[in-house]
Design a binder for these strands. Structure first.
Length: 590
DNA sequence: GCCGTTTTCGGCCCGACTGTTTTCAGTCG
């Protein structure tokens, strides 16, 4: 089993245990285990085969029991304990817990008392007004459940970061029209730069406290009223003294949190998360005799606040550095902090070139010269023109003759740039397909003439792992190939990765001195953060590329940078942060 | 189920909001 499948199985165990009202800390242990398995960069099956199940206890949060269960899943593809749990809980019942407002207790009660086991039955039971008769339920709860069923059906749907970013931009502009708000900051997984976000959190500072944990009610009301007026708000889900939640027309939930100035940093830290990062924070605070909440850092059980206005002072109170939000996933950040090795993360301005883009010669919308102009406007120092090869017929991919014509044009452009005295260089590139049957789409003599050869796979994506790997490894070993583009082929929320053993690909790239792409298209972000971190570990440079098909397409680089930051990459880890306009200087070897 | 400068048992983060509750349970993040 792959790590992803193992993680899904452990999550299902946690769901089922939760439904059975098991010890919540036991549930948490399985959830934590699932997360750690999902974060692991090397194949756990390989670990078990090489070193045995005991080696898995090296993973934080995995003890003897979980190690054995992970090993069982990895090697046999199933888990006896999970099979037993599934027999005890009717299929479909877990879906009940996905309904907003229905947790394990209420879902279990509905199932036990009314025999409801599907969303359809739940809907019928609510409509027949049977649910309101149960102990602890009422008319209001029944209505909430009914409203929530529609959302449950598309539960798990998340918004891509770039789409969330567009909403955030509009929201901030809207909220800035409210004079009661002194500062505002989006928090949550959006601030951490996750590739998808579940809902949005916005924090607003409504001024100094008027008493312990009290704010000026007038300022809060103004902020909340303004929030409710945001264009696209479909319904107000909740509105309390400090928190208000709305659902947008498209289903996206946004939470507004009002906080006093004294607590703004603590609240920002808290609502940025991740949850696991915060659990670690609070655990560390206890050891120091402190208590951390969204209101601040407090001495013992007292009301004496020792930090809260800024994130820096909150972290400092616990002897920790200000972690960049992208690192707050409880992966390696605390370890790095203790060793004083917190990386200086890459920034957008560190990128000096873009090595993957298309022109109107194939499926791009702009000419070579227009792309050059667009790249120069954005302050880049070099680009590679990398149109598709002939196999990509839909994009009218280039054969050898057309490609050599394009390269002559590149030579002309470079000469003109030199005459102009411009510090800009265009590399002769190609995005060459790796054929379904194996091998490259263009002859070796053509590829040998290129400055920069991207190898990528667009056809035969459903082939079995062995075949996919054979194709990819052939490309990695090919002397003219510089880099593998979008190595897993995934499209976020739409298409799973093809069958790639990414750890093997990384090892091969390391062995042959090749690079791997982080495709910055917000649909792709491929490699992902976990695998970029693994590449770094293996000494394989990453190239962040736009894969632009138009001038505006160059602007996606920032999404790639965000993902790279989540992987802990510095400018040293990213080859196109280096200067020099020849690809040897980028760190590849032929 | 995990874990250990409270060290092999007894803890495990903390608070807001809602609804159905006369004092709190369930859910959420």
């Amino acid at each position: 089993m792959t790590n992803r499948e193992i993680a899904a199985a452990l999550d299902e165990v946690a769901d089922l245990l939760e439904f059975q009202a098991a010890n919540p800390f036991r549930v948490r242990a399985y959830r934590n285990g699932a997360r750690r398995v999902g974060d692991a960069s090397q194949s756990l099956l390989a670990v078990v085969e090489e070193s045995g199940p005991a080696a898995l206890t090296e993973i934080d949060g995995v003890g003897k029991d979980l190690a054995e269960k992970i090993a069982e899943l990895a090697t046999t593809g199933s888990l006896a304990m999970l099979d037993e749990l599934r027999e005890q809980v009717p299929p479909g019942v877990l879906k009940l817990m996905r309904v907003p407002g229905l947790g394990p207790k209420k879902a279990a009660a509905i199932h036990k008392e009314l025999g409801v086991a599907t969303l359809d039955q739940l809907k019928a039971a609510c409509e027949a007004e049977k649910v309101r008769g149960l102990k602890g339920f009422g008319k209001k709860t029944e209505e909430t459940i009914l409203a929530g069923i529609a959302h449950a059906e598309k539960a798990g749907e998340r918004t891509r970061w770039a789409d969330a970013d567009a909403v955030v931009g509009r929201l901030l502009q809207h909220m800035d029209g409210c004079p009661a708000i002194r500062r505002r900051e989006p928090a949550g997984s959006y601030r951490r730069g996750k590739e998808t976000v579940g809902d949005l959190d916005l924090l607003v500072d409504v001024g100094p406290e008027t008493g312990p944990r009290e704010m000026d009610p007038g300022a809060v009301a103004q902020a909340m009223d303004r929030f409710g007026d945001f264009e696209g708000v479909a319904e107000v889900i909740a509105r309390g003294d400090t928190k208000m939640s709305v659902r947008m027309d498209g289903g996206l939930q946004i939470d507004l949190r009002c906080v006093p100035t004294e607590s703004f940093g603590a609240a920002l830290q808290y609502f940025t998360g991740s949850k696991e990062h915060n659990v670690e924070m609070r655990g560390r605070a206890r050891v120091k005799g402190l208590k951390v909440s969204e209101w601040g850092v407090f001495k013992g059980e007292s009301d004496e606040r020792v930090a809260g206005e800024t994130e820096e002072e909150v972290y400092a109170a616990l002897g920790l550095p200000l972690f960049p939000p992208e690192l707050r996933e409880h992966r390696r950040e605390f370890e790095w902090a203790e060793e004083g090795e917190l990386p200086r993360l890459i920034e957008l301005g560190d990128l000096r070139g873009d090595l993957h883009m298309h022109t109107s010669a194939t499926d791009g919308k702009a000419t070579l010269r227009e792309m050059v102009a667009a790249a120069r406007e954005r302050g880049l120092e070099y680009i590679a023109i990398t149109d598709h090869s002939k196999r990509v017929t839909m994009a009218s991919g280039l054969d050898a003759a057309r490609l050599r014509e394009q390269w002559k044009e590149v030579d002309r452009v470079n000469e003109e740039l030199a005459v102009e005295g411009a510090e800009f260089r265009v590399l002769k590139g190609i995005e060459c397909d790796i054929l379904e049957s194996g091998g490259m789409d263009l002859d070796d003599d053509v590829l040998a003439e290129a400055d920069w050869v991207i190898a990528s796979l667009h056809y035969g994506q459903n082939q079995p792992r062995a075949k996919i790997m054979e194709r990819l490894l052939f490309a990695v070993e090919h002397p003219s190939v510089s880099i593998i583009a979008h190595p897993t082929g995934r499209l976020i929320g739409r298409r799973p990765p093809y069958e790639v053993a990414v750890d093997e690909l990384i090892a091969a790239a390391a062995e042959h001195g090749k690079l791997l792409e982080l495709n910055a298209n917000p649909m792709r972000l491929d490699l992902d953060d976990i695998h970029c971190a693994a590449a770094k570990e293996a000494g394989v440079p990453i190239v962040i590329s736009s894969d632009a098909h138009s001038p505006a397409g160059l602007d996606v680089l920032r999404y790639g940078v965000l993902q790279a930051r989540r992987a802990g990459l510095t400018r040293e880890d990213v080859a196109n942060c280096r200067g020099g306009a020849s690809w040897e200087a980028l760190g590849a070897s032929s």
